[in-house]
Design a protein around this nucleic acid. Structure first.
Length: 106
DNA sequence: AGATGGAGTCGTCAATGGAC
DNA sequence: GTCCATTGACGACTCCATCT
């Protein structure tokens, strides 16, 4: 599993912004060198190539978008787990303190 | 073995916002 | 205004589990 370095939880209680999506520049394969400026192609061909380039970029962008979304969700899930643990711990601590207090009062 | 439904993934389109 | 990146929505497809 290749995690992208910015893994999530350190166990501290940060805020949810820890799970904000990060920008990471996507790397498109440089298949299409942007040449249409001075190309000697027919307009139709040129338009077709532009469309293909657009589709390719968008395909890549969609992949990246989904990857980031997954990462975000995973991060939120980690956060939930951490907070649930903290909650359990605090409840237990409270219970113990109540018990101590009860013994003192009696 | 085939039918069926749910979940996940992918490519595409269209809307939107920000940069220039 | 235009260009470009981002992302929600949609349809097509695949995989897997369950049912008959």
């Amino acid at each position: 599993m290749a995690v992208t370095g910015d893994e999530t939880e350190t166990g501290s209680a940060g805020d949810l912004s820890a799970c904000q999506l990060r920008n990471s520049s996507s790397s498109l394969p440089q298949v299409f060198s942007v040449t249409s400026a001075h190309s000697s192609k027919k307009p139709a061909e040129d338009a077709l190539q532009k469309r293909e380039l657009r589709l390719m970029k968008n395909r890549e962008a969609a992949r990246e978008c989904r990857r980031k979304k997954k990462e975000y969700v995973k991060c939120l899930e980690n956060r939930v787990a951490v907070l649930e643990n903290q909650n359990k711990t605090l409840i237990e601590e409270l219970r113990a303190l109540k018990e101590i207090y009860r013994h003192k009062v009696e």
